[in-house]
């Protein structure tokens, strides 16, 4: 059996007695979206940060293409970082307000010492390359999130960890960004770990859904099955609470 793009096994992250992530296991394949859904405080953001290695997991294994990442030091991890990148929830705090769009998208290239095509990246995410000289505050929320996505794509990663990437956006802009993410996945064969509290959004992007509650995954399966015929009580409550469906 071929190794999946991302294999997370028994991942744990504790803060003292609090087990934010309490033994989580899942896989993400190339070209596949696994959505982690849950309410605030369920540990899904901590999970995203552990996988993206912005925090060091307390235990368990994170294998990318068979390479174990969890125990690596910050220094040893650095050259591997181009393989997985993070997209954040709030594009107004995830872009340095003092930098231009061009500088922001160029940063990962500079850090890894590789060449890249910044105008091409901007065009790929649907931005006018002429915006490279602008500062984030001169852009709309949707444009800012496109900049965040362009930055995440700069190093040609295989995996994107998306932490509530459309939550801070307006409805009409949400749809644009969702479509952009779907297109990029198809064109680049990206694996997505898609963190969200919004089941409607998840329904539009996910192949598979994992429901997280109190640090654990309570139900995992194909999206139609988990959202359409939930088997766990908590998932049922979550699906029933979505207004207007």
């Amino acid at each position: 059996m071929a190794e999946p793009l991302l294999r997370v096994t028994n991942l744990r992250k504790s803060y003292g007695a609090l087990h934010a992530v309490d033994g989580v296991t899942f896989e993400v394949d190339r070209g596949e979206t696994l959505a982690i859904v849950g309410e605030s405080g369920c540990g899904k953001s901590t999970l995203a940060r552990c996988v993206a290695r912005l925090t060091q997991p307390t235990g368990g294994s994170v294998r990318l293409d068979g390479v174990e990442l969890a125990p690596l030091s910050r220094r040893r991890l650095r050259p591997l970082r181009s393989r997985f990148q993070l997209v954040f929830q709030d594009p107004s705090t995830s872009l340095n307000p003092r930098w231009t769009v061009g500088e922001i998208v160029r940063e990962p290239l500079r850090l890894q010492g590789v060449r890249g095509d910044v105008p091409g990246l901007l065009a790929e995410v649907g931005l006018d390359p002429g915006l490279a000289d602008r500062h984030p505050h001169q852009l709309s929320g949707g444009q800012r999130q496109r900049v965040g996505i362009a930055r995440a794509l700069a190093l040609s990663p295989d995996l994107l960890v998306l932490d509530e990437p459309v939550t801070a956006l307006d409805v009409s802009v949400q749809a644009q960004i969702i479509n952009l993410l779907l297109r990029l996945q198809e064109e680049r064969g990206l694996g997505y770990l898609f963190i969200s509290h919004d089941l409607a959004v998840v329904s539009a992007v996910a192949h598979r859904v994992a429901v997280m509650h109190a640090g654990r995954l309570v139900e995992t399966g194909p999206a139609e099955q988990v959202l359409g015929r939930p088997s766990h009580d908590y998932t049922r409550a979550l699906v029933a609470a979505v207004p207007g469906t």
Binding site: R49, A52, R78, S94, L95, N96, P108, A154
Partner: peptide
């Protein structure tokens, strides 16, 4: 604590 610093670390910043 801002996300843009996290993004920088995530891209390999020391």
């Amino acid at each position: 604590g801002e996300d843009y610093v996290a993004a920088s670390v995530g891209a390999g910043a020391g």
